[in-house]
Design a binder for these strands. Structure first.
Lengths: 210, 210
DNA sequence: GTCTATACTTCGATAGAC
DNA sequence: GTCTATCGAAGTATAGAC
């Protein structure tokens, strides 16, 4: 009765995420993706037209998911400061659920978006747009200082991506006794929440009354 | 009289920096590096043993240079807050002089240090060590809050690298009318100096006297 | 040290049977 | 939809003359 389950494109995408994150577009091997997904290579080409087609599909999904989750926070109730806090936590959750996120993002930035078509770029900009919206909301309400929204976005996103992507290299350094013990990702997230509270606050240091 | 100048390995390294930054280790083509350096491909293999040998030589040079420049600032006179300011400016200068820095760093983090041998890793950790030292100095003197030095280092380094590496992709987004005009790198550096002052300050927001 | 020509390998992609 | 076998391009590396 139970026939073998149909091969789902999702299996392939999951395997591709690992491979592309670990090796980048050029370093990724289609054979390895097929093997990890337990699919025949021809099957992979049947579902996605090419290596590039597979890559773009993966990135579109990834960015779309991230943008949706951030949008949900941005559109929710609460003060702008509160939303920034929750956006940071949401990013951490996203990365926790999809460990391949940070490496893919770092690579795409380094690559200058070489493999991205217009549609994929569109899904990509949705994230900074959402975050920027929250920052502007805070400025308008007089709660944040007049900071550039894109700057604020990069200030919060980059360290999180960087720290969580650098887990492997920190682990290797630890193994060679070149550095201290790694700290928990949670600690870093709390750190970034504190940093952003301070970075955005209207007045960080009350001016002396002279 | 004037015979053709001897091919210097430096020409090759400069070309390799561009190629590796743009395409990553796997995506880089030895032919292209040779052509950009105006050297024969065999010449390249004569000076460096292999593609990997060339890559490692480049990274060692890069990290060593960065660590030396940061060390100079860290060892200079001045308050810790002042040094943090100048380290940020120094990083910006380094990147301005060597545009390939950010992409290479992002890629190595994403790669998990896959192409790095022990010696190269040693030169790599020198940078966080120097920055961490300055932060600890500030904490000891009661000028900074008790922040984790590695966290502080990543908080300042990641956005700079990220912003300066994302120039091409922001430019592309601008061309597609998907985003606003790009801002000057200088503005971003000033932004990060302000952010780090706030992030490290002993007391950012005076507690209400209840 | 420098160059040309080429050996050898890997990999993306497809043809064609079922 | 699924699989096996294989083609053809691209790429690292080297042999060997100068």
């Amino acid at each position: 009765m139970s026939r073998r389950a149909r091969v789902s494109p999702n299996q392939i995408l999951a395997a591709a995420a690992l491979e592309f994150a670990q090796r980048g577009f050029a370093g990724a091997r289609v054979d390895r993706i097929a093997r990890r997904a337990r699919v025949n290579k021809a099957m992979l080409y049947y579902h996605f037209r090419s290596k590039q087609g597979l890559y773009r599909t993966l990135l579109r999904r990834t960015f779309t998911l991230a943008a949706e989750r951030i949008r949900t926070v941005a559109a929710s109730a609460g003060s702008p400061a509160d939303k920034v806090d929750r956006i940071i936590a949401e990013l951490a959750d996203l990365i926790h659920e999809h460990a391949f996120f940070p490496a893919i993002m770092l690579r795409e930035v380094a690559e200058g978006g070489a493999h991205l078509d217009r549609e994929t770029l569109l899904t990509l900009v949705a994230v900074p747009r959402e975050v920027g919206g929250v920052v502007q909301e805070g400025i308008k309400q007089g709660l944040f200082r007049n900071v550039n929204p894109l700057f604020a976005h990069i200030t919060m996103l980059a360290p999180i991506v960087f720290y969580l992507a650098s887990g492997p290299i920190r682990k290797e350094l630890g193994a060679l006794h070149l550095t201290n013990l790694p700290l928990s990702p949670d600690d870093f997230i709390h750190h970034m929440q504190e940093v952003m509270r301070r970075a955005l606050a209207r007045e960080a240091r009350p001016r002396p009354t002279s």
